[in-house]
C-alpha cells in the first residue's frame, strides 16, 4: 500500500477529522498488513502520540489501549492473571516476539481478522470495545456487526472475573495460522465457548453455552453433548489449508477437552 502523507494526530478529534477528510485515508495500527494491500491512500493517520499504548488495571476491570502491542499485552501481569493465563498464553503463540512488539491489540480486533488468536480467547471474557466518538459495544456484537467502521477504537475494557480458561490453536508449524482455534472459559461458574478460524472469525457457541450454563451439574455426557452442539451451531468450511470435516473433528475434540480442563479447575 502506498500513502502520500503521514499524519501524527494530536488528539482523537484531529485523528478522526483527518481520517474523514479523504475517503482513501487509513488509520495505522501496527502496520503489519500495509504491504498486503495494493490500495493507495492519501494520508495514513498515526495515533502514537495519544497515549493509547497503556494498560491500566482497575478494581474490577482492565483498560487496554488500542495501540498496546501484543508483546506488551501478553507480558502484562494483570493480563497474565486473566483466566489463569490463557489469554496471555494465546497471544504469546502468535508468530515471533519481533512481530508482536509491532502488532497492536486494537489492530487485530478492529480488522476482525478471521484467524486471530487474540479475538477468540477475548470473546470468552466480558470485553467492551470503546470507540471514539462515544460508542461502547460488546466484542461479540462488534464481530457480528456489518459495514465499514470509521470510528476509532481507543480502548478495550476487560472485566476481571475469577476463573479459569483454556486455549488451543491447531496449526502446522509453530508459526502457522490457526486451522482452528478454540477458547473455553469458566468464570464465576459461567462457561463460554468460542471457536475461530473456522475459517470464519471467532464466534461464541451460544446454544452449547446455554445448555451447559443451564445444567445443575456438568457431567461427561453434558460435555459431549455441548461439544456436539457447538459443532452443529457454528459454520465451518474448507479452505486450502484445512477441510471442513477436519475442522469439525478438531472442534469436537478440543471443545470437549477444554471443557474437561476448565471444569477440573473448579474448586
Amino acid at each position: 500500500m502506498a500513502f502520500h502523507h503521514y499524519h501524527r494526530a494530536t488528539s482523537l478529534e484531529d485523528a478522526q477529522q483527518t481520517l474523514l477528510s479523504h475517503p482513501s485515508n487509513i488509520l495505522l495500527g501496527g502496520g503489519l498488513w500495509i504491504k498486503k494491500s495494493n490500495a493507495e491512500a492519501d494520508t495514513a493517520v498515526d495515533l502514537s502520540l495519544l497515549g493509547l499504548d497503556q494498560i491500566n488495571e482497575k478494581e474490577d476491570h482492565i483498560e487496554v489501549g488500542a495501540m498496546v502491542t501484543l508483546r506488551d499485552f501478553e507480558t502484562n501481569p494483570a493480563i497474565q492473571k486473566l483466566g489463569g493465563g490463557f489469554v496471555a498464553h494465546a497471544v504469546g503463540q502468535i508468530m515471533g516476539v519481533a512481530l508482536r512488539k509491532l502488532a497492536t491489540v486494537g489492530g487485530s480486533i478492529a480488522a476482525k481478522l478471521p484467524f486471530s488468536d487474540v479475538i477468540t480467547p477475548l470473546l470468552t471474557l466480558d470485553v467492551t470495545l470503546v470507540f471514539y466518538p462515544k460508542k461502547e459495544i460488546k466484542l461479540a456484537d462488534y464481530l457480528s456487526s456489518k459495514g465499514k467502521n470509521k470510528d476509532i477504537l481507543t480502548h478495550l475494557i476487560i472485566k476481571k472475573t475469577p476463573g479459569f480458561g483454556f486455549f488451543k490453536k491447531v496449526g502446522n508449524t509453530a508459526l502457522d495460522f490457526a486451522q482452528l482455534n478454540i477458547a473455553i472459559s469458566r468464570l464465576n461458574s459461567h462457561v463460554a465457548i468460542a471457536l475461530g478460524s473456522r475459517p470464519g472469525v471467532a464466534a461464541l457457541a451460544t446454544q452449547a453455552m446455554a445448555y451447559l450454563n443451564g445444567c445443575a451439574k456438568i457431567g461427561p455426557k453434558d460435555i459431549e453433548k455441548a461439544a456436539e452442539m457447538a459443532v452443529a451451531e457454528l459454520s465451518f468450511a474448507s479452505t486450502t489449508f484445512a477441510s471442513e470435516d477436519y475442522r469439525k473433528t478438531l472442534a469436537l475434540t478440543y471443545v470437549r477437552r477444554g471443557l474437561e480442563e476448565v471444569l477440573a479447575h473448579a474448586s
Partner: peptide, 16 residues
Amino acid sequence: LLSNSFLYYKIPTTLD
C-alpha cells in the same frame, strides 16, 4: 501458486 509466501509455506521452526 497459493503457497507463495512464508505466511502460507511453513518451514520448520526451532519449536518444531
